[in-house]
Amino acid sequence: MKLDHVPSLPGLYGTAVAAAARDRVFRKQAAEQLPWVRHEVDRVPVDVGELTRYQHLLGEPARDCLPSGFIHALAFPVAMSVMTADDFPLPLLGMIHLRNQVEHYRTVLFSERLDISAWPRNMAAHRSGTQVEMVVEVRSSAELVWRGVSTYLAKGVHLPGLDEAPEENPPRSGFAPPVPTAKWRLGADTGRAYAAVSGDFNPIHLSAITAKALGMRASIAHGMYLASRALATARPEGVEAFSWDIDFAAPVFLPATVALSVRGPEGTRHGGTGAGSGTEYVGWNPRSGRKHFSGSVTPLPH
């Protein structure tokens, strides 16, 4: 399905809220299968002012090339358009971002017009609900430049027809915090600040009041804010093609202090950070020792 422009996220959230209310009133039977759709928007321009604000907030130098997280934010409404459509079987509101896996194939300049397409796949039972993957591909003049797979969990939603999820809890490997290499102090306005540069005004991120309305005890940091900030530090300098991933664990309730450790694969050994060596990172709550996220950045062969 071709869209003639990138939909507005507040509009999509409005659709999602309306859908949630309607389903509650009419107890509409949700679809049980993923729709066979692909939403596409062609020749999307980048606003250089928005790019600069994004780069400054996330600690990226304001270069002419697009940070990987910025491309995610740019394409996110197209994925949302799929997820808020009537034929999408899972409710958008309250969905939890579990992980992200991205291939960033080459430097993308802000002057390029980008073709964005998004589709769902691999809906599967999860021990606490149903998970689904959203695939987003970004092309420039037919060349694939960026590809991301985001995994979301609709908590408490169990659809018939899906294989039973493993009952037992996965092994909760005890997390031993490593030596930190950085500390982030995130103010209560972190969610609003990221919403302003990414357009993602999901109410669970905006304020304690809007978050509580959706059952959270406080507002939480956007997963992509954490991922993009970690990436700004962890991406080895000079690496233009890379893959990165992030697994989200405990949410970051705002305001917060997050301890971060970024390590080359050689650990503390002496070694270059140039192409060929990737980095791993993990973020946690320095008070409780609970892990917030972990991930890695790996250079791609040219």
Partner: peptide
């Protein structure tokens, strides 16, 4: 002589 180290990546 000047030198610098990579403390950002914990090296």
């Amino acid at each position: 002589e000047a030198a610098a180290v990579d403390f950002v990546h914990g090296k």
